[in-house]
Amino acid sequence: MPVVFFAEGSAAMGPEARAVVARAAERARAWPGVPVVVRGLAATDGSAGFGRALSEARARNVADALVAAGVSPDRIRVQPRGPVPYEAMQVESRRVEIAIGG
């Protein structure tokens, strides 16, 4: 499963993240009838609302990048999964998972 990592407190994608999305889009285009689930995670030591909004922003940015790379938006389902306890996951929680095939 392709995984896109983010900087703490950010939903911006850097060059490595864009490369992961490009490879995922290539795979998704190879299987045109298969759904694509984009799951965003965010750790927060702040409010739950901030973590939820950040996980959704990350997932939506990845979904938008998949669409820009030729994946039909009708196939993409965004699932924000934040926040998670900051102490529990830290770097591992600053990610978006791209599940091709659900």
Rank of each mutant, 00 (worst) to 15 (best):
M1V: 13
M1N: 12
M1I: 11
V4S: 04
F5E: 11
F6R: 10
F6Y: 15
F6W: 14
A7Y: 13
G9R: 15
G9V: 12
S10K: 13
S10P: 12
A11Q: 09
A11P: 03
A12W: 13
A12V: 15
M13P: 04
G14Y: 04
A17H: 07
R18Q: 10
A19D: 05
V21T: 08
A22C: 01
A22Y: 00
A24T: 07
E26C: 00
R27D: 01
A30E: 07
A30H: 04
W31R: 14
P32S: 07
V34D: 06
P35G: 11
P35E: 10
P35K: 09
V36G: 01
V36W: 09
V37H: 13
V38Q: 08
V38C: 08
V38R: 12
R39P: 00
T44C: 07
G46L: 13
S47L: 10
S47E: 10
A48K: 09
G49C: 01
G49M: 03
F50S: 02
F50L: 10
R52A: 03
R52N: 00
A53W: 11
L54M: 14
L54V: 07
S55P: 01
S55G: 05
E56I: 07
E56S: 05
R58P: 02
R58N: 08
R58Y: 12
A59L: 09
R60K: 14
D64H: 11
D64S: 13
A65Q: 01
V67L: 02
A68Q: 04
A68G: 01
A68N: 01
A69T: 01
V71K: 01
S72G: 04
S72R: 08
P73G: 08
R75D: 02
I76Y: 11
R77A: 09
V78L: 10
V78H: 10
V78T: 14
V78Y: 09
V78S: 06
P80Q: 07
P80H: 08
P80V: 04
R81F: 00
P83C: 04
P83M: 05
P83F: 08
P85C: 03
E87T: 10
A88G: 04
Q90H: 13
Q90N: 08
V91M: 12
V91Q: 11
V91H: 13
S93H: 03
R94I: 05
R94T: 06
R95N: 04
R95C: 09
V96D: 03
V96Y: 11
V96C: 08
E97H: 13
E97S: 09
I98V: 15
I98K: 06
A99W: 15
A99N: 14
A99G: 06
I100K: 10
G101L: 11
G102C: 05
G102A: 14
